[in-house]
């Protein structure tokens, strides 16, 4: 537990330190380079802001209307077999499909159940360890105009499911 925390807290400062030192050793004007990159950050965030607003409202509506609770109630007996927390089901289902809606769902879970609770940590780890699988497959296959994609969807979803189950298990073990 303490070791896990130590490594987690070390990661970001260590990487920043290494990169800045590397830049200095190679005689770069590191702050100019930094500013150039940081400016780009603006356009990235501004471009996803409208998407986030739309999806936050939709996800908030799903929860506050009570329909999400109803869906969760229906799913509970099924999921209790594999011991998977039902509250995370909407996130697990949306994660491979849409990046921005999974941001909205994950944020919703974290703010409702508490960001530092086990459920909040599970949602964080799932978000951090998986990708928007369907989107990635779509852009990579369409750029070479290939429709016979063989088994890649199956393999990619296997990876996602393993990632999600491990995320849940690891939060139960360590946190």
């Amino acid at each position: 537990m303490e070791f896990v925390n130590f490594i987690s807290n070390l990661a970001m400062p260590a990487i920043i330190l290494i990169i800045v030192l590397y830049g200095i050793i190679e005689k770069r004007r590191v702050f100019d380079d930094f500013l150039e990159g940081a400016k780009e950050g603006f356009s990235i965030v501004i471009s996803i802001l409208p998407t986030l607003i739309g999806l936050f409202v939709a996800i908030g509506a799903l929860r506050s209307s009570g329909i999400l609770d109803m869906i969760i109630k229906i799913l509970t007996p099924l999921l209790s077999i594999i011991d998977f927390p039902t509250e995370l089901m909407p996130l697990a289902m949306l994660r491979p499909i849409s990046g921005s809606s999974s941001i909205a769902v994950a944020t919703d879970i974290m703010s409702n159940y508490g960001v530092d609770t086990t459920l909040g940590m599970m949602a964080s780890v799932i978000m951090g360890s998986t990708e928007t699988t369907l989107y990635t497959i779509a852009i990579y296959t369409s750029c070479v105009k290939i429709k016979k994609t063989r088994f890649i969807l199956l393999a990619a979803l296997t990876a996602d499911i393993v990632g999600i189950l491990v995320s849940v298990a690891i939060c139960r073990m360590f946190l």
Partner: peptide
């Protein structure tokens, strides 16, 4: 605090894939 757990989960996912 989630960085290390994320590494473990993502490595498992990649290996499974």
């Amino acid at each position: 605090s989630i960085i290390f757990p994320v590494w473990i989960a993502t490595i498992c996912a990649a290996v499974a894939g």
